[in-house]
Design a protein around this nucleic acid. Sequence first.
RNA 1: GGUGACGUGACCGAGUGGCUAGGUAGAGGUCUGCAAAACCUCCUACGGCGGUUCGAAUCCGCCCGUCACCUCCA
Length: 512
Amino acid sequence: MLTLYNTLTRKKEEFQPVHPPQVGVYLCGPTVYSEAHLGNARGPVVFDVLTRYLRHLQYQVRYVRNITDVGHLESDADTGEDKMEKAARAARIEPMQVAQHFTNRYRQHMLGLGCLPPDIEPQASGHIIEQIQVIEEIIANGLAYEVNGSVYFDVPKYDEEGKRYGKLSNRSIEDQMANTRAGLEGQSEKRSPLDFALWKKASPEHIMRWPSPWGEGFPGWHLECSAMSRKYLGDLSDIHGGGLDLMFPHHECEIAQSQGSHSHTDEARFWVHNNMITVNGTKMSKSLGNFVLLGDMFKGPTGPLAFGYSPMVVRFFLLQAHYRSPVDVSDDALQAARKGYRKLMNGLRLLDRLTADSLSGEVIRDRTVAPLAEGRQPDTAAGDAELRKLVADVFVGLNDDLNTARAIASLFNLLRKFNTLAATTAAMATVSSAALSEAVDAYRAVVSDILGLQDEPRANAEELLKLTLEFYTEAKAEKAYDKVDVIRAALKSQGIVIKDTKAGVEWAYSEE
RNA sequence: GGUGACGUGACCGAGUGGCUAGGUAGAGGUCUGCAAAACCUCCUACGGCGGUUCGAAUCCGCCCGUCACCUCCA
């Protein structure tokens, strides 16, 4: 049974869907005004594994990952220029063009990292009507007020009603009041410094603006997720997540908005937060400038990294730590991860052989039974039990708050067993083909389907072809025509024909 | 200041009071035409000081150190 750590209750809870077998999952997606960095990838990778595992558990998952293309203000105060607009102005293009560009880049990188596309990928700008609707509900409930064409959420009033603003991040409204920064004063429109904007009036120079009951403007920081989560996952979804740094204020505000609207829920039953990626122990972030862009990281070198690392190595690296632990990036750690990843992939190839052998039953039986006396069947009880234990351990890890680090450790133990079995016929005789095939299926399922780790072909086809042509030329020089024919036929089966020209041996794609 | 984490062997990184985490690196060995891979063995650590306990990396206290959130941030 899967347990998940719920930030809302601060403990691990058994996962039960609100409406089984459906499961609604929402991940706060990227703000598409710049290139994604490694830190931006962790949430999507973790939630990709989570949704893959939920599907493996036979749940019908609807996975929503939004695109924030509006609504993030640049300055500390609730005023200032939208990040999209700022980027657009700098590049002298349409804001939507900026959004589209980085959305495309983001999708490309996420696919490379093995993240399956979400079922719904809603854009904030496409849900202005829904957001206005939520604001109207909150106003109707007396928890928001309009000033000068802007609408603010009334945090103190909400808190007075016993809703407890701060329940997610575990902070009291008194403490928050006491710790209000001096720099944040001067937002005269707000009744309380804790209030946050639901709708902001657009200043004349603002490009991204929409009509509303309060005049032309744009939605506030936290509204889109509440509105879109409700639209696609209902009043109460199952799992809502994002980085730890979104817990406050973003997710806290989301809960307030949902409680304050007609939904009257915490928006999601489970609030799940992944920890940060650090560089030399310090959080990777755009503002600190110590980030490693995904595109650069795949090519390398960049920033603190002297080498490039493939997307799958990066994915494996992230999954080797538990999602609630911080992970520090370094060449040492990534190089170790690369070897581990390749080991796991070699295991996948070994399984193809193991399965092929088991399928041709005679081969296995001959090999395994041969050393035994006539008429005796090998005793596989102990071997089978051991194999099944190794498989079970993998799922123990996954079920324990999606502890991929433990699951991977168990996979390596299972892999060692496979390697031992494959080494000798005597070893192979210690397990039944039924138990073996179960274990093989489990390994494949976990590595490929759940952890989403695919083999990355590292061989260069061009180089291999060149090598083959050298053998061809050699064989031809030796007049070893049988070899020549074999090579020619093999290449032809790959759609490639060899052309003997006066200048030398060349190749072309077969036109047949 | 408030809230919350964390300090594990050369490196990364799991650890639910007693049972080998795992990966990488290193040493030795088996196998091998040479290698590689694989397998076996070794290197067996928990910031410090106290306490609870038959027993603590794991619980409690204090101290030292690091980090995150409290402002947009995954």
